[in-house]
Write a protein that binds this DNA or RNA. Structure first.
Length: 210
DNA sequence: TAGGCCATCTGGTCCT
DNA sequence: AGGACCAGATGGCCTA
């Protein structure tokens, strides 16, 4: 139907490819939602359902609030608290259904590209952080978590090298940092001396500068 | 089979 | 007005 899952999809063909002539038949939006009213979930229950998702992690007491502290945060309050769920089945806008479908397809394509860029960034991040190499690639959440810990540890190392005080005098963080450094050195040694030298030079110059 | 992870579609909201 | 961003919904694949 809509998606094929990761195994089938090294780079999944766009919707328009799977449906070479979207104009000829109704887009799948309509085909798969014969009764949009019936399945439309109650908006109020959404937050309850989604608490486990990474985007919904409660930080600082409010859902998603601190993840979007910028201008976007205004959105929620402006719209009376939380987004209303869409009413599927197209039609929506003022223009004809055909024009709406065309815009939708273009929008889908842009969104796909955007997500591909995001995934490329994730891949870059995966390759930048040291971790035990396994056949299975790091998931997104693992990547973010590792990156966060990695940054913390590097910060600890750098602060230590520069003689600055650690935020909370964390001996544990120091120990973790030392462990991480060893791990990182091993990692780099596997890949050659150059990377390690570069790393040490960076940290050295950083500590000189601070 | 359930749960995790993912890609994609979609509509709402904000920004330019 | 159109694009970017976001998050919910959906469904497929994989693994324990």
């Amino acid at each position: 139907m809509k998606s094929k899952g990761k195994a089938v999809k090294p780079s999944r063909s766009p919707w328009s490819e799977a449906n070479p002539d979207p104009e000829a038949e109704e887009p799948d939006t309509e085909a798969e939602e014969p009764d949009p009213e019936a399945e439309e979930p109650d908006t109020c229950s959404e937050q309850e359902e989604e608490r486990d998702s990474e985007a919904s992690v409660p930080i600082g007491g409010s859902w998603r609030g601190s993840l979007r502290s910028g201008p976007r945060a205004r959105r929620e309050s402006a719209s009376g608290g939380g987004r209303r769920r869409r009413q599927r089945g197209g039609g929506g806008g003022g223009g004809g259904a055909k024009e709406h479908n065309v815009r939708r397809l273009e929008s889908n394509e842009r969104e796909r590209q955007r997500m591909h860029k995001l995934n490329n960034a994730f891949q870059g991040l995966r390759e930048s952080i040291p971790h035990i190499k396994t056949e299975k690639k790091l998931s997104k959440i693992e990547t973010l978590t590792l990156a966060k810990n990695y940054i913390k540890s590097l910060t600890t190392i750098i602060l230590g090298m520069s003689g600055a005080h650690l935020p909370d005098g964390e001996a544990q963080a120091q120990a973790n940092a030392a462990k991480l450094l060893q791990c990182y050195q091993r990692h780099l040694e596997e890949e050659g001396e150059e990377g390690l030298t570069q790393f040490l030079n960076h940290t050295h110059s950083f500590s000189q500068g601070s």
